[in-house]
Write a protein that binds this DNA or RNA. Structure first.
Lengths: 356, 356
DNA sequence: CAGTCTGTGTAGATTGATCTACACCCAAAC
DNA sequence: GTTTGGGTGTAGATCAATCTACACAGACTG
C-alpha cells in the first residue's frame, strides 16, 4: 500500500522533535550508524513511521551520496535496451540504490546531455550505453564518479565495461550463412558501425568480423556494406533499394534486430520470401521468436549484461579502483529466416506452405 | 562535443571569485533574474564558460526547483510505453526541464515505490502511468507536487489526466469482429482489467465495452473473459488452454498487443491460422504492422498522449490550478489477423497460401 | 541643495541532511 | 576515591545554491 506520500514537508527536525531527541540522533538511526541504543532506535523509528518521514535526496546529495545510480540509454524504441534495464533493476533491487533512466534525446549528440543530466543530479554512479561518446570525455567523467560502459570494446583503466563478444557473435552468424551456402551476403550497419573499428562500437566490431569472414571465405570481392539508420522504417527503405538491384544478395546480415525486421519487411514488400533472401539479425529481441517472424539472430543476454553492469557499478561505489572488463558470450539462435540460397537463376515460385 | 564533464567540483563560489563578483550576482545571471548589468552578465558568463560550471541540482532542490520532471513507467518491455516517453521527451526538449524515468520494479506493488522515488528526488512534477495506484494516495501526492496521470479514467480535481477513449476503441474492435461475422469472441485481460470498472483502468473500460457490445449483439451468453498476465509467454500459455477447449472461440480480442502476440503465437502452436482464429489487440505497437504479424489493433497515439501529458504538466508547474482531462481518440487499424470465421463445423484445412 | 528614485550589486539567512568533535554518565579498575 | 573508558547522545559546521533585504551610486525632481 505504502504510507501517505510526503513531499519533503516532514523533515528530520520534525522527527527529532516528535521523538524528543536531536537531529543527529535521527540521522544516525536512518543511516544505521554507530552509537544508538535500542530504546532510542525504537522511539525514532516510531516517530519516522508516524510522520511518514522520507529523507530528502537533495539534502543528502549536498554532502555525499544520493543513493541513486543513473543509466543513460539511446533509442528506447529498440527492445534490446529494456532488457538491459530489467537486468540492472533486478541487480539493484536488494541494494539501497534506485535506478533512474536518462533517455538520450536523439536530437542532440550521442548522450552527452543525458549523461551530464545524470551527473548534475549527483548520481552515485553512471551506466552508459551510447557507443560513440568520446573516451577522453568519459575518462574525465570517471575521475569524478564511477562509470560502467556497456557495449563498447575499448579498454580504459578509469572505467569498467561490460561487452558482448561481438566478434564471436558476428562470426557465428557468418559461419551459419556460409555453411548454408550463401556467397552474396550483404551487411547492414548504422552510422556507428561506419565510425571505424577503433571506436570500439559493437556495430564496428561486427562489421569488421563480417569483412574478415568474407575475406577468409575467399569472398572479398563480394563484400557489400550498406549504411542505414537503425529504425525499422528506415532500414526497410534502404533494403528495398538493395533488393531492387540486379545482383541482389541472397542473404542480409543486419547489425541489429530492428533493422533486420525492416529488411524482412522489405523482402515481403518486394514479393519475396526468406527462401529468396535470408535475413539474420543481432540481439534476439522477444518478437524474433514469434512464428510469424522467426528471425535468426544472436542472443546477447541483455539481462545478464545489465545485471553485470549494475554489479560492477556497486563494486566501484564500494571502493574498488582496479578496472574490470567483463565479456558475455553471445549465442546464435537459428530460426527460419535463414535458409539455403536458391540455385542461381532459379525464379521465385509460389509454393504451398503449411505453418512455418 | 560538450565541454569537460564536471561533477560538482566547480561551485558558484568559484565562479564568483573568477569573475570578481558575489555569489548572489552569479546566481542572478544563471537564473536570468532582474538586476544585472550587461557588463556583469558578460563577465559572469565568461567565467562560467571558462570553469565549466554546472549548477548543482541538489543544492537547487534544497530551495525550490530542480528543473526535473519524473515519469513512472511499468513494464518497459511493453513497446507501447517507449512511445509515451518519446512524446514526453519531445515536448520537454524546448523547456529547461529534464525527464527522468523511474521504472516500476515489478516485484513491488504497482509503482508506489517508483513514484515515491521520484518525489524523494524533488522532481518538479510527476507523470504516472500505473493504472492501479490508489486515487486517494495520488490526491495526497498532488497536494505537494503537480501530477498528470496517463490512461486512467477517474477524474480528480487535484491532478490532470490524459486518456485514450478506451470505450470507443474497444467498441470499434468489437464492431469490426461482429461485422466479420464472429459470434464466439473471447476477451483476454490482465488482472488490472478484472479490478472492476470503478478502478478507471483502461483494461477495465475495454472489458466493460466488450461485455456491453456482446450484450447488445444478443451474445450475452457467449461472453468469455480470460484473465492473463500481460507478458507474451504467459498469454501464449493461457491461450493454448483456451484453444484446446471443445468450443474454442473464433476470435480473441486481447486488451493489449503484447498478449495478442502471445495469442497469435499460440494459434500457430495449435496448428491453426488466422483463418481459424482471428486475433485483435490494442496499442498498435510497431511490430504489428510487420507482414509476418499483421495484427489488427487500435492505435492509441501514444506519442501524442506522452506529449500532451508533458504539456499539461508544464502548465501545472507554471501555476494552473484547475484540473484538465484530455481525451485522445483511438483509431482502429485493420490488418489480416482478423478474418471472417469459418463456417461452423468446417475443419481446418491446409491451404496453399501466397504471401499475406 | 535636500530629497527621491532607479539601477546595480552584496551580505547573510535559509534549506535538510551528514559527520566530526565533544560532553555526559555509569561502571569497572587501580 | 580518583581514573579510565566504553556507550550514548548533542552541538554546530558544512554542503551549494536561492532570495530577501539592504547599501550605494548617480540621475532627476521640487
Amino acid at each position: 500500500m505504502a504510507s501517505r506520500p510526503s513531499a519533503g514537508s516532514v523533515t528530520i527536525e520534525d522527527v527529532a522533535r516528535e521523538a524528543g531527541v536531536s537531529r543527529a540522533a535521527v540521522s544516525k538511526v536512518i543511516r544505521n550508524a554507530y552509537g544508538v541504543s535500542p530504546a532510542m532506535k525504537a522511539r525514532v523509528t516510531e516517530a519516522i513511521e508516524k510522520l511518514g518521514y522520507r529523507p530528502s535526496v537533495s539534502a543528502r546529495g549536498m554532502r555525499g551520496k544520493t543513493f541513486t545510480v543513473g543509466i543513460e540509454i539511446p533509442e528506447l524504441s529498440n527492445p534490446f535496451f529494456p532488457k538491459l534495464l530489467a537486468g540492472a533493476t533486478a541487480a539493484l533491487s536488494g541494494s539501497p540504490y534506485r535506478l533512474i533512466i536518462a533517455p538520450a534525446d536523439p536530437e542532440h549528440g550521442e548522450g552527452y546531455r543525458a549523461i551530464q543530466a545524470l551527473v548534475d543530479r549527483q548520481v552515485d554512479g553512471v551506466i552508459a550505453v551510447s557507443p560513440l561518446v568520446d573516451p577522453e570525455w568519459l575518462e574525465a567523467l570517471a575521475d569524478h564518479v564511477p562509470v560502467v560502459m556497456i557495449g563498447r570494446h575499448d579498454r580504459s583503466p578509469k572505467y569498467d565495461a561490460v561487452v558482448s563478444d561481438d566478434e564471436d557473435g558476428a562470426r557465428q552468424v557468418m559461419r551459419h550463412l556460409l555453411d548454408l551456402g550463401h556467397r552474396d551476403i550483404a551487411h547492414l550497419t548504422p552510422a556507428a558501425g561506419l565510425a571505424g573499428i577503433e571506436s570500439g562500437a559493437p556495430q564496428a566490431i561486427r562489421l569488421a568480423a563480417y569483412r574478415d569472414a568474407m575475406q577468409e571465405a575467399g569472398l572479398g570481392d563480394r563484400i557489400r556494406v550498406v549504411g542505414s539508420p537503425n529504425g525499422q522504417p528506415e532500414s526497410r527503405r534502404v533494403a528495398l533499394g538493395l533488393l531492387a538491384e540486379a545482383d541482389r544478395p541472397t542473404a542480409v546480415f543486419a547489425s541489429h534486430d530492428e533493422p533486420a525486421l525492416g529488411v524482412m519487411h522489405a523482402v515481403a514488400d518486394a514479393g519475396l520470401t526468406p527462401a529468396d533472401v535470408s535475413v539474420a539479425g543481432y540481439d534476439d529481441v522477444e518478437i524474433a521468436a514469434h512464428p510469424g517472424i522467426s528471425l535468426t539472430t544472436v542472443d546477447q543476454h541483455g539481462e545478464r549484461m545489465g545485471r553485470l553492469a549494475a554489479e560492477l557499478l556497486l563494486e566501484r561505489i564500494a571502493g574498488r579502483a582496479e578496472p574490470r572488463h567483463e565479456t558475455v558470450r553471445p549465442e546464435l539462435v537459428v530460426r527460419t529466416s535463414t535458409r539455403p540460397p536458391r540455385p542461381r537463376g532459379g525464379a521465385p515460385r509460389l509454393r504451398a506452405v503449411g505453418r512455418t
